[in-house]
Design a protein around this nucleic acid. Sequence first.
RNA 1: GCGCUUGUAGCUCAGUUGGAUAGAGUGCAACCCUCCGAAGGUUGAGGUCAUGGGUUCGACUCCCAUCAAGCGCGCCA
Length: 506
Amino acid sequence: MNIEQNLKLKLQKAFSKLGKNINLSDIVIEHSRDVSHGDYATNIAMKNCRLFNKSPRDIANDIIQNIDMEGIENIEIAGPGFINFFIKNDSLQAIVKKIIEDGDNFGKGEKKNFKINVEFVSANPTGDLHVGHARGAAIGDSICRILSFAGYDVTREYYINDAGSQILHLAESIEARYKEQLGLPFEMPQDGYYGEDVKTIATTILNEDGKDVLKMSDPISFFRERGTFLELEKIKKDLKDFGVAFDVFSSELKIRSNEAVEKEIEFLKPHIYQDGKALVLKTSDYLDDKDRVIQKSNGDYTYFIPDVVYHVNKKSRGFDLLIDVLGADHHGYINRMKSALMMHGYSADTLEVELIQMVRIIKDGQEMKASKRTGNAITLRELFEEVGVDSTRYLFAMRAASGHLDFDMDLAVEQSSNNPVYYAQYAHARLCSILEQGHNIAFDIEASQLEKESEMALLKHLVSFPSAVLEAAKERAPYKITNYIHDLAECIHHFYTECRVIDTEH
RNA sequence: GCGCUUGUAGCUCAGUUGGAUAGAGUGCAACCCUCCGAAGGUUGAGGUCAUGGGUUCGACUCCCAUCAAGCGCGCCA
């Protein structure tokens, strides 16, 4: 039994003895910052002034007169009406045995029978992943790991936009580079991709598919298919080396097959009107601030309608919740997609969008603009090869996604020993060292000798790990875990400095 | 012009869903290894929580206005 949960139950019982009911979820147990405020504290007396119609301190007094003191050393009332709990040492010491017994499962949430689909990265296969994708990949992957550990059934998904006009531009660019390498006259398309990666792909196609591609009946389709495949292979490899894996890759082309878009439009007909030759979806009937064109005057569909098909497709696969991890520049897209899902009878919170704010790369004290087109952009691979995978991921994961992030390359690289990730790794190394040197010494699994301040602080922090996991999962906030790790490392360093662990004298 | 996001120490950022003296890293200054990894620990300086109102026992947190920054506002994706 978790100590916090236990305290909540005790408080609930004390309330019922006083003739009042309170929900466990309405009881807040805080970790006291100051040791003189005990180990745990609650503001429950202040929150329920009206319920008792008494002063907070009087209520607090009533509560502690009626509370079960099992496992509790002392209770004090402080300040305006805080109740401070001083926990008996052995209650905290018991966590050591539990952690050793649970092993890697310590803190793991119970199976929730709740299926979540997390879509992230989903970069167009038209070039290398850049730093913006890197942040999305690090945070998206961390969210998946956390949700999974917290007990949710998680599917990681990548949506490949392989049907739009951007892909056509890619195909034309590859064709131009292919001609170039054959020594033929060539012209890059206006919205073409000028990066080195396109030249590399043209070379690969020349080597693997030969010199006669242009003689095919539809060379552009060939370049499109091969180009998408090769770009995607590169993306997959970059992500894999970055420690990110996906369960499902969904292709827009496949989503569009079997006239899925036409069927979708038929289904949405009651919400569609005609504007000239174009078809418009009345998303403003729901959450959107304006209606959205789904079919252009020239007969082409906009990107939006296959996206709707895709989200409906995901939902139809039996997920309880869809999470999209998107760049913040897509925020205008949230309400229109939710509106479309609502037209299908789903509630607005069927889809949850985690926006990842922009990343600025700072080098030599200046911002480096990331541009896919110039070929000089900083890619995901460059980033983690220069900074290191662990470090890069930690630096992204440790900041809330909602804030703009300055990623200082000079700091991350040159002063890597001062990097926050090393602080945690060093604590780990020290503990490993103790285990190695003390491998033939028996453990005191009851941990009954732990009683110094730094030892109790460490135990308390260990006890709080399961609630840190729950919190991080609920908030979709990986940085709550890195914060936990930092505080844990701090506890360990204090403990290590103050206490000698290997002691054959006793 | 409208909308979303953000504004906290010199810099990069937390702040547990309205609570006790607003915290950490980094940078700066001074200390601490005959002993488990000094990539560590201790101490100090550094704040008008963008600004101005409001709500209440109590506001960095909630509401309104203003200022500043980023991003959106397309029959592009």
